[in-house]
Computed example of a mutant assay.
Amino acid sequence: MTQRRMTALRQYARLECPGLWREHAAAQRREVIVFFREASLILADPQNDQPLTHWSLPAVQRLNNTIPAIYAPGDDHEGETVEIEEADMIAALSTVRGALESARPNPGRLRNLMLGGLLALVILSAFFVPRAIISHTIDVVPPATRTRLGEMALAEMVHVTGAPCAAPLGRAATETLATRVFGAASWRIIIVPEGLTHPVHLPNRQILIPAALVEGQDSPDAVAGAALAEGLRFAIEDPLRPLLKHAGIWATLRLLTTGALPEGAMDGYAEALAQATPADIPAEVLLTQFTVAKVPTTPWLRTLPPSTRTAALMDSEPFPAGAPVAIMDDNEWVSLSGICRE
């Protein structure tokens, strides 16, 4: 990274502004908050700051020369755009883009030598900086590819969990649960009949919850807490990271260069994910987010093994009388708890 770009990034660090986001060409524009970060632009829901999409900063393109400025996440943006009127944000994007352009080498007689050096760098990176390659791939993978990888991950999980429980009323109840917990139906909560001892999350905002957790409760509070906690783990670590670490560095390079993983790259991924120990979540983060979502912590904590429960969290229950806003009505809970039996 050039000194000029470093200076630009420091100048505009933590900048944010409102914008109008269109997810694809046929979608309606919606209000978002645009966050300027070191490697990316984050477009988030203004109601709860929940990220909706990440754009790789080097790939961002301006599509017009008027105000509001219209930006796209790259060449293959499929109609996804964001409109920005904030002068400081427009200046930040222009400055960083200019720094990137000035640092980009011009083609010339040393092209072959440079390509050879790049190939050598890639080979060395495969051995010495795999984390950097995986991080870069996560930053630049487009939403359509992330969606496709999420579908592939779910198909792989079925080998361990069996087909997701699919009773129609139960599936409708999972949508109600996702909207209640996350404030967005874009999250997908999936109940699976076997193979898991704890919830896991997949790319494309998918959370898998074992049926035993649902069927063993007399209210939806514990299930809501389990989903919310797994959503927090999603925020702590992008689910593409363990997927790409499992696939390996060469498969990641294949994804980076072609947009697709090689055949067999996900073999064994489901077993590894099911057996992995869930990431710890800081107690203060749990309490804050459960309070914001109006979900009690105690019902969920009681589903955890005694060795993993935190007494301080049990004692700090924000809603000792239960959820102040119902998770769902009784009929929906009956449908959810019977999702695998219908």
Rank of each mutant, 00 (worst) to 15 (best):
D280Y: 12
G162R: 10
L118G: 03
A184Y: 07
L110C: 03
A274P: 00
E332A: 15
A247T: 06
V192M: 04
P58T: 13
G98D: 13
T291V: 05
Q206S: 03
P324K: 07
T179A: 14
G225T: 06
V141N: 00
P210V: 13
N112H: 03
L253G: 06
V158F: 08
R62Q: 15
L115E: 10
V160I: 14
A69I: 06
D88R: 13
S40Y: 10
E83C: 00
P220V: 05
S102A: 15
A326G: 02
Q3M: 12
V34R: 01
T288Q: 14
L261D: 02
A276W: 04
L304M: 07
R109Q: 09
G116V: 04
E194Y: 05
G162E: 06
V158S: 03
Y269H: 09
S219I: 03
P203N: 10
A103L: 11
A247Q: 03
A274D: 05
M114E: 12
P220R: 01
T291K: 05
S316Y: 07
R188M: 03
A276M: 10
E284C: 01
E38T: 14
A155F: 04
M266W: 06
V32L: 09
A222F: 10
N204T: 04
A184I: 02
V158W: 04
E83M: 02
P320Y: 08
V140D: 05
G79V: 06
P73F: 01
V223P: 00
K245N: 09
A235P: 00
A283Y: 02
A235Y: 02
P239R: 05
L336H: 03
I189K: 01
A163C: 04
S56D: 15
G268F: 12
F182A: 07
L286K: 13
H24F: 13
A144P: 00
G74F: 01
R309G: 02
V60T: 13
